[in-house]
Amino acid sequence: MELLNPGIGLIFWQTATFLVLVFILGKFAWKPILKAVQDREKSIESAIRQAEEARKEMASVKADNDRLLAEARSQGEVILQEARKNAEAYLAKEKAKAEETAHRMIEDANKKLEADRLALRAEMKNMVAELSVDIAEKLLRQQLADKSAQQKLASTLLDDIKLN
């Protein structure tokens, strides 16, 4: 059958044309196309990788920031606590000092008061003694105004002496 009988002419032309096509397309079409596609694939890949790296870096920077912030916060806390402690200690010290001063002042006042009281008592004692002497004088003068009373006293005194 004619259809199944390959003609030499077409075999020749087909071989020649096809090989030329493979060569020329391979060199001037497939090579640049495939290279461009590969380059693009690589650039996309590297862009994705860079984005991933940037993301990781961002995450690490954020973690750093967080850490620094936490550190600063805790440091602040420490400082604050110390300040509070210092303030408390200072306050306590001042309070103690004030208390001591007050105490001393009260003590001083008390001492003074005591001294005053003692002085007053001594004075009062003297005054009472004087008054008593005065009163006793006046009483004695009154009681011993008449003769009989003087005699009676003398006799009593005498009696006492006898008893002794």
Binding site: G9, W13, I24
Partner: peptide
């Protein structure tokens, strides 16, 4: 017979198109 037949002409045309 190495003639440019209808098929060969079409073959060359397709080569030009592809290029």
């Amino acid at each position: 017979d190495l003639s440019i037949t209808k098929n060969v002409a079409s073959l060359l045309l397709s080569a030009v198109i592809l290029l």
